[in-house]
C-alpha cells in the first residue's frame, strides 16, 4: 500500500512527489505518454535558468530528482482507477494493480474529443466516455468504441459484460494492441442520428449502424478518470479547491488538468500544494 499514487510525471506530478517523499511518505509515480513540458523546445521564462532549458531536460531532471529521493517512478499505462470500500485507490495498469491512501491526478490535459462532426451533438444521446457508468443502458445492443490503443481495448472488454456486439473504430489509425473484437480502421466523416445516435459515416461513403459509441482516444487521461470516479469537471478541467482537493476526499489534481495558465511555474506550485495537502490528509487519517 502506497501513501500516495501520482498519475503523471510532469512538473506538477513530480513536484508533488518531492514533498511527499521528503515527508517520508511512500510514493509511486506512474507515467506513460510524453508530458506536455517535454514538447517545449526551450523554456526561457522559468526561474533560475540563465540560458533557458529544454523541456525535455527539465522533465528528465525532474524524474531523476524524484528517483534520487526514493520515489518509485514507473512507466506504465494506467487504464482504470477505482475506489474500494475502505476509500483506498486501486490503480490498474496494463499488467499490475497498485493501491494507495491518496491519489494525485497530474496527467496534463489531453484532447478528449476527436474532431469529428456529431461528437458533441450526441454526447449523452448514445455517445459516452465511460463504459462502466453507461454500459448498463446498452445491454445486448450494438456498440462501438472509438480509439486505437490499449485503453480502447480495455473499454471494449468492459462493455463485453453487457453485449457481444462490439466493434473498435480506429478512425484511420492502426490498432495498437490485439483484440478479439471486430476492428474497422476506416476514417470517420460524421456521427449521425436523430434524438439519439444511429450510425457512423466513413469518408469512403459507407455507413455502420450503432446504438452507442464509447470514446477512448489515446491513453486514458485525467478527464477520463475524473468522469469515471465522479470528480467535478468544468470545461474539461478538473475542479479543485484552494488546496488542490477535488470533491472526493484524499484525491487531488494539479497542473494543466485544472486549467488556467499552462506554465511550468503554475504546475510546480499546484503540485507542491497537492503534495502538502496529501501529506496532511495521510497524517490525519492514520
Amino acid at each position: 500500500m502506497f501513501d500516495c499514487i501520482i498519475v503523471g510525471a510532469g512538473p506538477a506530478g513530480i513536484s508533488a512527489s518531492l514533498y511527499l517523499a521528503r515527508a517520508n511518505k511512500k510514493v509511486l509515480v506512474l507515467y506513460y505518454n510524453e508530458a506536455q513540458v517535454e514538447k517545449a523546445h526551450k523554456i526561457d521564462n522559468y526561474y533560475g535558468f540563465v540560458d533557458g532549458i529544454s523541456g525535455n531536460d527539465l522533465y528528465n531532471n525532474g524524474i531523476k530528482q524524484a528517483i534520487n529521493l526514493g520515489v518509485d517512478v514507473l512507466q506504465e499505462e494506467v487504464l482504470d482507477i477505482k475506489i474500494d470500500m475502505d476509500m483506498h485507490y486501486q490503480v490498474n495498469t496494463l499488467n499490475n494493480q497498485y493501491t494507495s491512501k491518496t491519489l494525485i491526478i497530474a496527467t496534463g490535459n489531453k484532447k478528449l474529443r476527436p474532431n469529428i462532426k456529431g461528437i458533441i451533438e450526441f454526447e449523452g444521446k448514445g455517445i459516452s466516455y465511460c463504459a462502466i457508468c453507461d454500459g448498463f443502458f446498452y445491454r445486448k445492443k450494438k456498440l462501438a468504441v472509438l480509439g486505437a490503443s490499449e485503453y480502447a481495448i480495455s473499454e471494449a472488454n468492459e462493455l463485453n459484460n453487457i453485449t457481444d456486439d462490439i466493434t473498435i473504430l480506429t478512425n484511420g489509425e492502426k490498432l495498437n494492441g490485439s483484440t478479439k473484437f471486430n476492428v474497422i480502421d476506416k476514417k470517420i466523416k460524421e456521427i449521425k442520428g436523430d434524438v439519439k445516435i444511429r450510425n457512423v459515416e466513413f469518408e469512403d461513403g459507407s455507413t455502420f449502424e450503432i446504438d452507442g459509441l464509447f470514446i477512448a482516444i489515446g491513453s486514458a487521461g485525467g478527464i477520463d478518470f475524473a468522469k469515471k470516479l465522479g470528480l467535478m469537471v468544468e470545461n474539461d478541467n478538473i475542479v479543485v479547491d484552494e488546496n488542490m482537493k477535488t470533491n472526493i476526499d484524499g484525491l487531488y489534481a494539479c497542473g494543466n488538468i485544472t486549467g488556467g495558465l499552462l506554465q511550468v511555474g503554475k504546475a510546480v506550485y499546484e503540485g507542491s500544494l497537492a503534495g502538502l495537502s496529501a501529506i496532511k490528509y495521510i497524517n490525519e487519517n492514520k
Binding site: 449523452g124 444521446k125 465511460c130 457508468c133 446498452y138 439519439k196 470528480l231 469537471v233
Partner: peptide, 23 residues
Amino acid sequence: NVYSIPTLLIFKNGELVRTFVGL
C-alpha cells in the same frame, strides 16, 4: 432518452427545459 448517468432534467410549467449529462 437518458443513456448516461447521472443525467439531470429540469422541468418548468410541465415542460422539459434543460438537460445536464454528467456530474
